[in-house]
Design a protein around this nucleic acid. Structure first.
Length: 825
RNA sequence: GCCGAGGUGGCGGAAUGGUAUACGCGGUAGUCUCAAAAACUACUAGUCGCAAGGCUGUAAGGGUUCGACUCCCUUCCUCGGCACCA
């Protein structure tokens, strides 16, 4: 009996895919029992910004790759939670709304519809009952709740700070959102402004955030990026007396070993000490410098390059070690936010210090000799020894390696009470407030009597009011500040008149906890159900773009730690396993609307079907690597799926033909093994290649030996193909499986397993090399003794040619694989 | 400058230290067709040779090894991130 009548002759993905998406929806095929699941597997993909252009193939690549992993796990018997949502609050969405002349709310409604439509089209196995939209009051109620928890833990504080201000977006930006001195969103040059802002004290968690990295199963490059971002540096704070003054100056250094060569001190312009120590005769000059420095943007500073500027305060600090009078300067290359906002200059052994000293004719002392043994005075920047060397001109440190000297001198300084070992971090506190409209209002009330008070939980959410003037004001205040009625409120503590905070919180707060919410979208009484969180979290597998290696992951980790400290959850780290996927680029550049190279999947889905596009995207290269999108190969993938479709009509159900040869079994089990391993490692391209090789074998066998595909082979084949091309494989599966009235999806069948006994070959081809060069090959019986293999190899005509009249030395035998005969010339 | 990833046919890419270029795209020739498309078959790193077969080849140069795309050193280039961080 051949060919099942139920499988249509023509492969028509448009009809097929719509049909199955509907059936899956109706049957809740991908819905998971959140309370009772036995083998919970939380398969999470980073939820997208619903940009106006809609989902592009870059998004689709990420989602499909994650979905394949989820489908694979589901077929391994896991109860897979695979939710999706939209990260729709924030500047990005608001700016787009401004551009198209809609309110952010209107825009959100439109893009939401479009995104969910597209997310259906690509055929992912989402649980559609667990959606999250960050701009939904039911969601941001709990974002506000989270803010209050941080506030109550003493982790939210307010301070006036020089902040990055984007004059185009009219808002404050976090340090992380400033790229090359420009706004991450719009590319406008960022200004420095002094504004009152809310901060989260993430630095308090720096050490834990750093330490926990060790135990995470994450892509290495992401772990390294996190480590670098936290940027812990061990060093020492040294306090120097100031000549003729009661003040002292404290600097941070990681290189106290060079302290015998210290010849000046430099302070950041913002350092409060500047005003206190500047002598009368230098006052005017210093004030002018401070004023100029405060007006300079980062871009202007960069434009000046490494050309150092600075001004002398007239004061001197005394170097304990040498008694040297170190002039105290002010320079904008010293950063207030790092260390103590002051440094000690060792121009002989630090390139920046050298430049500064050269420019202002300060003394340069050599205290380290490098491997070049140059002991001459340092007059050129090439002579500046930074990373290695031996101490000289440094009293009791002389002759020591610099690293040893560093430890020695730190002990000494601490002993003398001149300083103390400290660690500093690159990580800064999280600037959380935004003078914008499209975000969750910060749920705090300022009472003239009681100070800042959180909005009581029963009053949450603080709804974002619908207002006419929602566009940024540029006054340094949120548009919400104009709503006097809304701002006016009563103090939750004393019931006196009070004012609401009018800033909204940073979008990164929205996305720092959404993975908790997915488990509990049906619950209104709490941010999440603790039992469900215990069951499903930490997230089993998290997949997302490397561009979020630092910010989103770090903030999520921070929030999770805080919740853990509050005993609301029983773990510190939110993502057990994280893998970064590659980026799909187009013509060598990242897809972006401004470059006009955005590829939208819709047209390809219409022409070839989602199955083809999915499989094609995954075949492009390793998932972690991404690739350059070109449609040149997509026809080939479509061809492959069509071949599978046709061969599925011609399988044999004749029991006498069912018996597979040893070779056929071996090829099948090899394919299962290879595909399973490759999918586990997110190497989808080679998994697909393994399927193709198997297909080629069967197709060839069918033609040359007349043995068609067997039912067993077909079933196995479409199961492995199922995660990649879920629609067509489902159709084939339904046509070959029994006529059960109940719908049993292919995607809930168990994954094929391979058996080692079928993998072994009875006769094997062994490569024969002479001096490492392949000269011949031969077939041997598996497991043959080395001696016999050697004899067989040496007897080969082609090999004789190379061994004749020469002395055969060593013979290396790699069992069942290769034999290498070494001959001497 | 620092950190990270990478450099393999015409192209995307494949190779636990063991036959380099699997799989796919593209190309060439053929089958089918009135013709074309589709589909199918064969070939497809360079080079010498009628062939058998040889030689050369994984950015460049060196090293370790019986054997190196793979490990080590030096250099060059591309991409991504950070950047006056003491």
């Amino acid at each position: 009996m051949k060919s099942k009548k139920t499988l249509p002759a023509k492969y028509d993905p448009t009809v097929l895919e719509e049909k199955w998406q509907k059936i899956w929806d109706e049957n809740k095929t991908y819905h998971v029992d959140i309370e009772n699941a036995k083998n919970p597997f939380y398969n999470l993909m980073m939820f997208p910004y619903p940009s106006a252009e809609g989902l592009h193939v870059g998004n689709m690549y990420a989602f499909t790759g994650t979905d394949i992993y989820g489908r694979f796990q589901r077929m391994q018997g896991k109860d897979v939670l695979e939710p999706i949502g939209l990260d729709g609050f924030g500047i990005h969405s608001e700016n787009y709304a401004i551009k198209v002349g809609r309110t952010p709310k209107e825009h959100a409604a439109i893009s939401e519809k479009n995104f969910y439509r597209q997310l259906h089209l690509i055929g992912n196995g989402f649980d559609w009952e667990r959606k999250v939209e960050t701009y939904d009051p039911k969601y941001y109620k709990w974002t506000q709740w989270l803010f209050i928890q941080l506030f109550n833990q003493g982790l939210a504080y307010r301070k006036k700070a020089p902040v990055n201000f984007c004059p185009k977006d009219l808002t404050v930006l976090a340090d992380e959102q400033v790229i090359d001195g420009k706004c991450e969103r719009c590319g406008t040059e960022v200004e420095k402004r002094n504004l009152e802002q809310w901060f989260f004290q993430i630095t308090k968690y720096a050490d834990r955030l750093l330490k926990n990295i060790e135990g995470l199963d994450w892509s290495d490059k992401v772990r390294i990026a996190q480590r670098n971002w936290i940027g812990k540096k061990e060093g020492i704070n040294i306090t120097y007396p100031i000549e003729n003054a009661k003040e002292t100056v404290t600097i941070f250094t990681t290189r106290p070993d060079t302290n015998f060569g210290a010849t000046f001190i430099a302070l950041a312009p913002e350092n409060p000490l500047v005003a206190k120590i500047t002598t009368a005769e230098h006052k005017k000059e210093v004030e002018e410098y401070l004023k100029a420095a405060s007006q300079k943007s980062d871009i202007e500073r960069q434009a000046e390059g490494r050309e150092k500027t600075g001004v002398f305060t007239g004061a001197y600090a005394i170097n304990h070690l040498t008694g040297y009078k170190m002039p105290i300067w002010v320079s904008d290359f010293v950063l207030m936010g790092f260390g103590t906002g002051a440094l000690v200059g060792v121009p002989g052994h630090d390139k920046r210090d050298f430049e500064f000293a050269t420019k202002f004719h300060l003394e340069i002392k050599r205290v380290v000799v490098g491997s070049d043994n140059d002991t001459s005075p340092i007059t050129a920047i090439e002579q500046v020894q930074e990373d290695e060397g031996t101490m000289i001109n440094s009293d009791f440190l002389n002759g020591m390696d610099i690293h040893k000297a560093t430890e020695k001198i730190m002990d000494y300084i601490e002993e003398k009470g001149w300083g103390k070992r400290v660690a500093t971090y690159h990580l800064r506190d999280w600037l959380i407030s935004r003078q914008r409209y499209w975000g969750p209002p910060i749920p705090l009330i300022n009472c003239p009597k009681c100070g800042w008070q959180p909005v009581p939980e029963k009053d949450l959410p603080v709804l974002l009011p619908d207002v006419e003037n929602w566009k940024p004001t540029g006054t340094g205040e949120s548009p919400l500040a104009q709503l006097t009625d809304w701002v006016k409120t009563t103090c939750p503590k004393c019931s006196g008149p009070a004012k609401r905070e009018t800033d909204v919180s940073d979008t990164f707060l929205d996305s720092a906890w959404y993975f908790f919410r997915y488990t509990s979208t049906d619950i209104d009484s709490a941010p999440f159900d603790t039992k469900r969180v215990k069951k499903w979290l930490p997230v089993t597998m998290y997949i997302g773009g490397a561009e979020h290696s630092v910010l989103h992951l770090l903030y999520s980790r921070f929030v999770t730690m805080v919740l853990s400290d509050m005993k609301l959850i029983g773990f510190e780290e939110p993502f057990a396993k994280f893998r970064a996927h590659g980026l799909i680029i187009k013509d060598g550049a990242k897809m972006s609307k401004s470059k006009g190279n955005v590829v939208v999947p819709d047209a390809y889905i219409k022409k070839f079907g989602a199955d083809t596009l999915r499989t094609y995207l995954m075949f492009l290269g390793p998932f972690s690597q991404g690739g350059d999108f070109s449609d040149s190969g997509i026809e080939g993938m479509h061809r492959f799926l069509k071949r599978v479709w046709f061969i599925a009509h011609e399988f044999s159900e004749n029991p006498s033909e069912e018996a597979l040869s040893e070779e056929s079994l071996r090829i099948m089990h090899k394919a299962i093994k290879k595909a399973t391993e490759e999918i586990s490692n997110l190497r989808y391209n080679t998994a697909i290649a393994a399927l193709m090789e198997w297909y080629n074998f069967v197709s060839n066998r069918s033609k040359t030996q007349g043995q068609p595909l067997t039912k067993q082979e077909l079933e196995t084949f479409i199961k492995i193909l199922a995660p990649f091309a879920p629609h067509m494989t489902e159709e084939i599966w339904q046509s070959i499986s029994g006529n059960d009235s109940q719908f049993r999806s292919l995607h809930k069948q168990s994954w094929p397993t391979f058996e080692a006994k079928y993998l072994a070959e009875s006769s094997i081809t062994v490569v024969v090399q002479v001096n490492g060069k392949v000269r011949d090959n031969m077939t041997i019986v598996a497991g043959k003794e080395q001696k016999q293999v050697e004899e067989q190899a040496l007897a080969l005509e082609k090999i004789k040619k190379y061994t004749e009249a020469k002395q055969v030395g060593k013979i290396i035998y790699v069992p069942n694989k290769l034999i290498n005969i070494v001959v001497k010339e």
